[in-house]
Amino acid sequence: MVRVRAPEEAATERRPATAAGLPQTTARREQARARYPDSTGFVERDGVRVFYEVYGTGEPTVLMLPTWSIVHGRIWKMQIADLARRNRVVTFDPRGNGRSDRPSTADAYAESEFAADALAVMDATATRRAVLVTLSMGAQRGLLLASDHSERVAGAVFIGPALALQAVIPGREPVDTFMDHLDTDEGWAKYNAQFWRRDYRAFLEFFFSQCFNEAHSTKPTDDAVGWGLETDAETLIVTDIAPGIGDRDAILARIARVHCPVLVIHGRDDAIRPHAHGEELASASGGRLITIEGGGHIPNSRDPVKVNLAIREFIRGLAGGS
């Protein structure tokens, strides 16, 4: 593990006096977060460094897993400060974005690699067990951890889970033309490696407009596009063709091996992953389903109060019930 300077220390400015010679105090940093981490560091596996942050104290630890590398750990910005008032919160940037490295092969982005990163971060932060909170693709690595490493998982929250379960959203049927040169870039045809190479930003703007289909979503949309621009098309292409966790049968077999309490939060109007997937995950795992009426794919950004209260109540229930 390598300790790094916290961002605020890195941004320190020193000014002895104003230009006019008036005495003055000095700035420490640009404040851009409600709460800065109490400690940060890197874990390294197979030469790939992954950056993590730790906030606050209080059991149980909440491990916010990264989702698809199109964004990084700041996707949890509306959760961190609130949850860290009561619990220790650990986040990490996915390989492929943020301050983590960007390996160039698809195998390096296998779901099993993200799960192994999570275990390495837990080890590095002396986290024996944690409540996992996942978003979208994070459900896959979360499911690997909850099924294969149940002793380390006190509970699991799945927000807008991206699992290959039943039902698809019309217009979003699985296609295998991802690497092809298409004669259109209308709508979901933008979900295509060649288009990403042509106009990565346009893809990001389209994709997040679909994620945030609620009214008045300019801020989370612009935030997410900015995070997407911190990585690039080639990196995102290899994440897309990386090995997943199998088909519906394999996923259901894993869900059957999950014994911790489960909470699923799914937007009724999720345009990326159908609400039916959340329903199936909840019923197969015996977990609770909370539906955000009118909600899209990323309710933790767009409806943070509802999501934070649901996570808080879930954590409270773990303490009471165990």
Binding site: P7, A11, E30, A32, R33, G47, V48, R49, F51, H72, R74, K77, D93, G98, R99, S100, D101, R102, P103, S104, T105, A108, G226, W227, L229, E230, T231, D232
Partner: peptide, 17 residues
Amino acid sequence: ASRTSADHALAGASDGT
């Protein structure tokens, strides 16, 4: 091959906030 995150640091952008 593994590019480091520093290779991707945006000029002027602090930490994606």
